[in-house]
Nucleic acid binder design. Structure first.
Lengths: 349, 349
DNA sequence: GACTAGCACTCGCAGAGAGCGAGTGCCACT
DNA sequence: AGTGGCACTCGCTCTCTGCGAGTGCTAGTC
């Protein structure tokens, strides 16, 4: 069915114009429309012949006999890979983006949130930003604060300027002095260590220093262990913005489809999995329709780009919208957002 | 049109059965259906007469000549106020709720989140929990942590076990000692004070202690001021759960309506305003259809209940769903959730 | 051989009309 | 007061019809 002949110049151009047209107004595109809006000046009949070729190759299809043609998934693929002429961002937009994302008084999470909501606002679609998978999340500081008789608040600050806190139920009262003492020991021993290493080292360290510590102290250290353990697990793994913008699109007028999409955003698991795959990609990556392999994205496209911290790729951001989206604009926006986010993260150290 | 005659026993009963029926399957209810499912054994013709009376009073209406009747807003009002027989919660459910909401190792926000998601899960609708408006949010502890050359992390702990943190950009480097010194002074001076009072007192205190402080210290105190000021403004004022559950209901199949609703949840302002009004109410309060006064709630009902901390009412929680909702179940659920939340808050002190 | 004009054909869509059925209001009767 | 009977209303669904956009094919032209 789909012979892989090299496309003629004309066929490519027609496909391009057809896709652009379809993206603009969503309706199937007929031969006459195409003959009018294409720079190639041939009659509608000739165009029909070429369109027939394109259909043979599986790049376009007609929803029914007497309608125009719409791009297939494969057609979109070709369009995105070789035909689309991306619109570079306006300098003004770019500056605005830079300014908004990299506020000086923001911690990592706030930067991510801004990036996400900006991305969604510019593209008018839903956006998602993965929380960075830093190789090194290290301990900067741990502190205990007695709340009431048997409750202690553990505050943990990481090198990402993130503050994580957790309330710990204790079996007896601890004095402020005791708590400070243990916190000091803890900070001296583990400051600058990766959190994951802290977790594993705590056990052996407890063993080793058994002689130097009394029972009370050991108990508190166990508390510290709790604090460090739970701290970064219950964090959300991604930041989502503008889901409800998806309701604007006709493609998602069926409630079922829309609900599946919304659930996908809530469940997160599958979503994360998809994004994970994009970490390796070098630049912008586009999943069209069913390519993602997830049913809830069947009528969607997902445009992603990895972002870095230093040299290392630490996360992915992207937008989710209808397959019929303005790739020429969305692709550069996603690309630039990733770059701006990267430099914002770098300037935070 | 609507004569305010006292309703006969029969008319009341019929209205009740009609509303229950309509709530169950959403279709207009006809006289025959009613004669079959009502305990009153009269013929359909008789029921038709009574229904005609009910229509005169504006309690029910028929969408068109040859359909059954549906309750009007006023009909729902009467039903909710005097006819509904609420289903008390199962002991099992109640216990489960208690357990989930009042975990020992939760801070206020986590408790609210649990309550909200539980409420949404049980009712299968969207839920919203206002963040408590404590009369007294007092300072428990403030701490500075140097992050980099000109960045300081301010960590503020309130008597609600809430940790708020903020990154502050400074104009020069501060040593750890300097920071500790100011934090000490700050904590000694303001510990136990209401945050709002701290804000206002900081100015005069700065003035008064000018002699005792050097320029550097004053600068840090200004930082503290920043920390306290912004701290509780950018907090969300409410916790929302299960918005997407609203997509399940036929009533909201029109995208426009649904979008308006979703936006209302995002905008928050109007929502908060509505909830504020419920603070004064003593128990469960029900807004039916347009009663709320907000256009985006036209086809919705909102069921709210205030919750307390100690004696004082500090917030409101509630659910939002279609007017055609199972009030007999939703009302007690909202009621009990508010009670459980109240006692969870009390046990946190 | 590449392109074009003409033409018969297909098929979705919107509107009109018909039949059905649920439900009503009214009236005469018990 | 309550009931049975009956004519009437009106939304829903199905079918039919005409319209128009768009196609594929064929014969003709450069």
């Amino acid at each position: 069915m789909s012979s892989e002949l090299p496309l003629t110049e004309r066929a490519q151009h027609l496909l391009k114009v057809l896709v652009e047209h379809h993206i603009r107004d969503g309706k199937p595109v007929g031969s006459t429309t195409l003959s009018r809006s294409s720079r190639i000046k041939v009659s509608a009949a000739t165009i029909r012949n070429t369109m027939s070729d394109l259909e043979m190759m599986g790049l376009i299809q007609s929803p029914h006999t007497s309608a125009g043609r719409v791009p297939t998934q494969k057609g979109y693929r070709l369009f995105v890979d070789t035909l689309v002429s991306v619109q570079p961002l306006e300098r003004l937009e770019l500056n605005q983006m830079r300014e908004e994302i990299s506020g000086e008084e923001k911690n990592t999470r706030e930067v991510l949130t801004t990036a996400s909501s900006l991305l969604s606002q510019i593209t008018q679609m839903a956006s998602v930003v993965m929380v960075p998978r830093h190789g090194r999340v290290t301990l900067r500081h741990l502190e205990f604060l007695p709340l009431s008789e048997k409750k202690v608040l553990a505050i943990l600050v990481t090198n990402r300027d993130e503050v994580q806190n957790r309330i710990i139920q204790t079996d007896r009262d601890f004095s402020e002095r005791e708590l400070r003492q243990v916190a000091n020991w803890f900070n001296q021993t583990f400051e600058g260590e990766e959190l994951s290493r802290v977790r594993s080292r705590l056990v052996e360290e407890l063993e080793r220093a058994r002689g130097d510590m009394d029972a009370a102290m050991q108990r508190i250290v166990k508390m510290a262990q709790q604090a460090v353990t739970s701290s970064d697990q219950n964090r959300d793994e991604m930041v989502v913005s503008g889901r409800s913008r998806l309701m604007e699109y006709d493609e998602f007028c069926e409630m079922d489809r829309l609900r599946m999409l919304f659930n996908a955003f809530s469940e997160k698991r599958d979503m994360i999995h998809l994004l994970d795959q994009c970490m390796e990609a070098d630049g912008v990556q586009v999943f069209i329709g069913e390519e993602s392999g997830y049913r809830f994205f069947d009528d969607c496209s997902v445009v992603t780009a990895p972002y870095r911290h230093g040299e290392e790729v630490v996360g992915v951001l992207g937008v989710v919208g209808p397959t019929r989206m303005a790739y020429d604009r969305v692709i550069p926006v996603v690309d630039m957002t990733a770059k701006v986010l990267s430099s914002a993260l770098n300037s935070m150290d």
